[in-house]
Design a protein around this nucleic acid. Structure first.
Lengths: 188, 188
DNA sequence: CTTGGCTATGCAACGAGTTGCATAGAAGGA
DNA sequence: TCCTTCTATGCAACTCGTTGCATAGCCAAG
């Protein structure tokens, strides 16, 4: 049910349509929770029929109408209740780590390009985060005093930055290891 | 299909039964890929009928019989093929980060205990990893020269250690932020 | 001697997530 | 003019993952 809660948070930060949510899930919120538009539309419909959200048809010029969703009382209450529950610490699913261990049973050097590609993606994400940090929190245009919501957004962003930095450093370690092993023969 | 590949890797490292795999997925492999025993039994059955695995009934004394699975030719080929394919960099699902952003719409201090609990879990995991590192790689009983398989296991373990250290530091940052915000009123 | 825990396997039902496809108007470039 | 891209929503089918339950023998503690 975590998608529901991610949607509640995102809509409380700013009401919007399914389409807009889908784009947010490609950016900001999406760095910590991903979802496709199919999932979002389906869940929005359910949440609306459960009375967590209100919907308004918004006619627009020169583009299709949209349905703008907005959190109402019971939705807020549901979020609050969830905040009071405890969740179990995330279990990572790190496919690349499985691949690296699997490389012992093939030629490890086949992974070099793959790891380089991943490194590039993480490096791009880091740059994106750092740009956001400068824009919203540390740059000249940023507010000098943050409110609670901004403080919390910033601490989450700092987490993203720390994660990407750690990952890049680790991928460098992986690359060095793969190169050191060279094109050795498969074993076991 | 990633569970299939994680199972192939684990069974190549050492053949075993569904039950044994389930326990491995609570430990070593499970730090990078989780699965419940239900999932594992189901997938093992499918993989066996697809000819990726061979199974032997192993009668045991003083405990139930087990079925020991072992990777055969086509399974190895499937793994090799997967290693040559590219996967998309993982999209994290960090529920706690969603909660932290959601705390802006409630009392942020309700999260303090939750975050402390998560910190404890990560701290325990780190201790577990470090013990494994000492036992298998850096301690006096460890081999002085590692083969490729051990090198790869070690680099994955180093990733786990880096991840836990980063996470603990971030959770400390989160705790400091939550405490600084105190029991301020909900906003927005 | 009964209760609870460990090994060992499995079914059934449900919910979460993915992939492919479909519609439809408007804008902009080849 | 046609083709693609962007906004905007949605269905259908499928796979993946979780939860609850069931069985069954052995062992150890109370």
């Amino acid at each position: 049910m975590a998608l529901e809660h991610a949607i509640l948070v995102s809509l409380l930060e700013k009401p919007g349509s399914g389409y807009e949510l889908a784009r947010r899930f490609d950016r900001s919120i999406g760095y910590f929770w991903t979802a496709t538009h199919q999932q979002i539309y389906r869940v929005l419909k359910r949440m609306e029929s459960d009375g967590l959200l209100a919907v308004r048809e918004m006619p627009q010029q020169s583009r299709p109408d949209k349905k703008e969703y907005c959190v109402v009382g019971p939705g807020r209450a549901a979020l609050s209740q969830w905040l009071h529950e405890s969740i179990q610490p995330e279990s990572i699913r790190h496919e690349l780590a499985v691949k690296i261990r699997g490389a012992a049973f093939d030629d490890p050097s086949v992974l070099i390009r793959e790891v380089e590609r991943h490194r590039q993606v993480h490096s791009d994400r880091l740059a994106h985060y750092l740009a956001g940090e400068l824009r919203d929190f540390t740059g000249p245009a940023a507010p000098t005093l943050l409110d609670a919501g901004q403080e919390l957004q910033y601490v989450v962003l700092r987490g993203g930055i720390a994660y990407e930095r750690m990952t890049i450093a680790w991928l460098d370690d992986v690359l060095a290891t793969l190169r050191r092993l060279g094109t050795s023969h498969p074993q076991a």
